[in-house]
Structure formats: C-alpha cells, structure tokens
Amino acid sequence: MTTTDVKKGDAAPARRRPGGATGASTRSRILVTAILAVAAVYFLVPVYWVFVAATKTTSDLFDSFGFGLGEEFVLFTNISEVLTYNGGIFWRWTLNSLLYSVLGALLATLLAAAAGYALAKYDFRGRELVFGLVLGGVLVPAAATALPLYLLFSQIGLANTYWAVLLPSLISPFGLYLCRIYADASVPDSVIESARLEGAGEGRVFFTLGLRMMAPALVTVFLFQMVGIWNNYFLPLVMLADEGLYPITLGLVTWQSYQGRDIEMYMRVVTGSMLSVIPLIIAIVVLQRYWRGGMTAGAVKG
C-alpha cells in the first residue's frame, strides 16, 4: 500500500516536468475517448437501425429514411405479428435460446471455474499439458467442430435433441483459461491452507471460498459464453431438424429465406431481430457492474 503511494507520488511530478506534458496527456485522453466514441457509434448504429426499422410498415421500411421514423408507427403491430406468426413459434424459439444460453452458460461457467481452479491450485503431473491442450482449444473455431460433433451425436442418437446444442455449449476453453489465470491471482494459497486446517474438504473449499473469490471472472465467463451460445448459428443448423428445438438465430434465418416469396417477412425478421437482442442488453446491463469490477481487479493483481 505504502509503496504504491510513494510510486504514485513520484510518478506524478515526473510526468509534469517537461513543458506541455499535461497537454499531451489530455490530448491522448481526448484521442482515446474519440476512438472509443467512434467504436461505440460503429457498434450501436446497426442496433439503432434495427430498433427504428422495427417501428415501420413494410413499404415505409423501403421508402423512408433508414435512421428516421416512417410515416406510420407500427412497432406494436409488428411485435404482435412476430409473436403470433406460424402459431407463435417465435416464443418457442425464445425459450429455447434462453434455455441453451442461460443453462449452457451457467454450467459452462461452473465447469470452467472448477477446471481453472484445479489447474491453478493443484500441482499434478501433466498439468501444463492439460492447460496447453485447452489453450489449443481456444484456437479451434467452434464451426470447425460442429460437423464432427454432429456425426458423433448422430451415432449415439442425440442429434436433433436439446442435448445436441446444450452439451457442446458446456465447454469454454477461453473460460477455463481465464479462470485459471484469475484463480492464480485472486485465490491466495494461504486462504486455502487455513480452510483446510479448519477441516474443510476440498469440495467445500472450492464451493465456499474459491467460487466466491473468483466471482468477477465468473461473471465475465458467463457473459461471454451466454452471448456466444445466444448468437451461435452453425451448430444448431447442423444439429437440429425440428422447428420446435430451434433457437432464435436459426429460426430467423428460416424466415429470412422466405423473404423472396413473402415481402412481409422483412418486417418479421427485422422485428424478430430487435426482440432477440433485448435479452442480451438486459443481461449486459444487469451484470456489467460485476463485470467491470472483475476486469479491474484482475488488472491490478496481474
């Protein structure tokens, strides 16, 4: 603590010494903020477009300025159209997406936490090999494994079931990596030692102490995994052949494929896309407090 203070005290005057240095740092701060602002606009404009477009009629969609409102405001008509079209199947897709992403991300986080904790805190032979293999897994894109997984699942009779999408979603190499790094940095060996001395079993140490101390990293892993599963398209495409099991992504693409025959599909796809980002926005807004805390904590300790 004291050392840090001294360092800060030293650093501050040193930076001010050359003339105009403060100006430079302000300038760089402006630059960074500007870059971030541009990035934010870049990411938010399509979202904004989707929200505005979802309020329009089909002919307004094509005939009015893309970023302004159309002549009529039919958001609620469009939403009820999406929710009732084809027997209300959009509800089913939403529930499926929630099931795949929330349950999948929860279990994936738990697995990643347990494995990361074990790799960080237990010394065993082949530890680095396991870790290296998992790191290698980060490099393999999920799409590349979808087809082999499909063949495997077909052989054991699990293709075209909820398990077909859920089971592969439970593995998060990136999450495991992050959890190991984080457990290394934030779960002190001394705490584990004293817990053991108090007579706590390994499982109890992990569940009561380890998990809690790793919480910020777990939120990050959970969010990443949830967004990843929510947006996954290729795995469900390959695995599922039953609209009743589709997540929203796959469902919306089937609607989009039909646009050439039924122009009203444009509105259903746009409005459906708008609805499908809302759960993600909610999840990010609710969890971002923990998330931000987590990232900073990791940075300081690191």
Partner: peptide, 22 residues
Amino acid sequence: VTIPGGLDGGYAKMFNSLVAGN
C-alpha cells in the same frame, strides 16, 4: 420441417444428414 433456404445453409444441412444417415 422448416429449414434455412438451400444456399443459406439448407443444402449443407442436407449433405451432412446424408453423411450421418439422418
């Protein structure tokens, strides 16, 4: 069963199903 249009992924899905026997 509604699947994505052919070149949107539908044909890939059909080819995969042939390979897997589904």
